[in-house]
C-alpha cells in the first residue's frame, strides 16, 4: 500500500529511479516572498541609480524609460532569467533548496521556464495565488497551472547525510552473548523498525523507550527466546544477534578522508 507522502518517484532516461521530495505551497510561498523582496530591491536600485544619472545627463526621459523597462523585465522575466542561469532556481528557491525540473526528472530548459513563469499571472488570480494553490492542491505532484503547461515540477533537494552505523549502548557483553540463542531470524520490517528505534534511542526518554519497546518486546521474546531485564534490551540483543553485531568487531580499516559536507561515516 502506498503511504501518503509529498514525494514522487522519477525515472531518468538511464532507467534509474529517484525519489524526490515535492514542494507545494508551503515551501514555495516562502521562496516566492523572498523573491518578491528581491524583485522590489532590484527595481528600487534601478530607480535610485538611474534617476540621478538621467537627470545629470539632461535626459530625464531616458531614466524614466529605463525604469519602465526594468519594471517590465523584473515583473515578467525575473523567474525566467534566474531559472535559466541557476539551473531551475531563483534566489528564493536557492535559499530553500528548491529546484524546478521537468516531470521526467531531467533539467528544465528555457521554453519550460518561460512558459511556467508567464503563466504565473494566471496562477496568481484572483489574488495571492488563489488559482495556483487550488491547482496545486488538486495535483498529486503539487504543480500549479504554469507547471502543468510547462511540464515541470518543483522539488526540494535535501542533502541527506548517511548516518553512521548503529551504536549499541552498552555493547553486548560476553555473558549476554552466551545466553543468546544461536540463530535468530528477523523479518526485513522488524530489522528496519528496530534499527530505527535504536538510532532514535538517544533522543527518547528512558521511560518512553521502554514503553515503545514493550510493543514488540514480549512477542519477540516469546518467539526467539531472547531473555533480558528490559524490553529495550530484548530488542537490542535480538537485533544484534540477527545482524551479527553481538560480537566485538575487529577494528575496521580507517575510513577514507572525509568529504566536505556529508562523508559516509564509519563506525567508531
Amino acid at each position: 500500500m502506498e503511504l501518503l507522502d509529498t514525494t514522487a518517484t522519477i525515472e531518468t532516461p538511464e532507467r534509474v529511479s529517484f525519489r524526490y521530495r515535492l514542494a507545494g505551497p508551503g515551501q514555495r510561498s516562502v521562496a516566492w516572498i523572498i523573491d518578491l523582496a528581491f524583485q522590489i530591491l532590484v527595481i528600487a536600485l534601478v530607480v535610485v541609480l538611474l534617476l540621478p544619472l538621467g537627470l545629470a545627463a539632461g535626459l530625464e526621459g531616458v531614466g524614466a524609460g529605463l525604469q519602465y523597462l526594468a519594471m517590465f523585465v523584473v515583473q515578467w522575466f525575473y523567474g525566467v532569467v534566474f531559472e535559466t542561469l541557476l539551473a531551475g532556481r531563483t534566489p528564493g528557491k536557492l535559499l530553500l533548496d528548491l529546484r524546478v525540473v521537468r516531470v521526467d526528472g531531467s533539467p528544465g530548459r528555457f521554453p519550460d521556464y518561460l512558459l511556467r513563469n508567464l503563466m504565473r499571472f494566471a496562477d496568481f488570480l484572483p489574488v495571492a495565488f488563489g488559482i495556483g494553490v487550488l491547482t496545486m492542491a488538486m495535483d498529486p505532484r503539487l504543480r500549479r497551472l504554469g507547471d502543468l503547461v510547462a511540464g515541470t515540477v518543483v522539488v526540494a533537494e535535501d542533502k541527506a547525510n548517511m548516518l553512521g552505523d548503529v551504536v549499541l549502548e552498552p555493547p553486548v557483553s560476553e555473558a549476554e552473548r552466551r545466553a543468546l540463542p544461536p540463530r535468530i531470524e528477523l523479518s526485513h520490517d522488524d530489522l528496519q523498525v528496530i534499527e530505527a528505534f535504536l538510532r532514535r534511542r538517544p533522543k527518547l526518554s528512558d521511560d518512553r523507550a521502554e514503553e515503545l519497546a514493550r510493543l514488540l518486546g514480549p512477542a519477540l521474546s516469546e518467539r526467539t527466546g531472547v531473555e533480558a531485564p528490559s524490553w529495550e534490551r530484548v530488542l537490542t540483543l535480538a537485533w544484534a544477534r540477527a545482524t551479527g553485531r553481538d560480537r566485538p568487531v575487529e577494528a575496521p580499516a580507517p575510513p577514507p578522508a572525509p568529504a566536505e559536507p556529508a562523508p559516509p561515516e564509519s563506525r567508531s
Binding site: 523479518s187 520490517d189 523498525v193 510493543l215 514488540l216 512477542a219
Partner: peptide, 12 residues
C-alpha cells in the same frame, strides 16, 4: 516508532 513497533508486534 510506536506505529512501526506495534505493527511489528502484531505481526509476531
Amino acid at each position: 516508532l510506536q506505529v512501526g513497533l506495534r505493527a511489528a508486534g502484531l505481526e509476531e
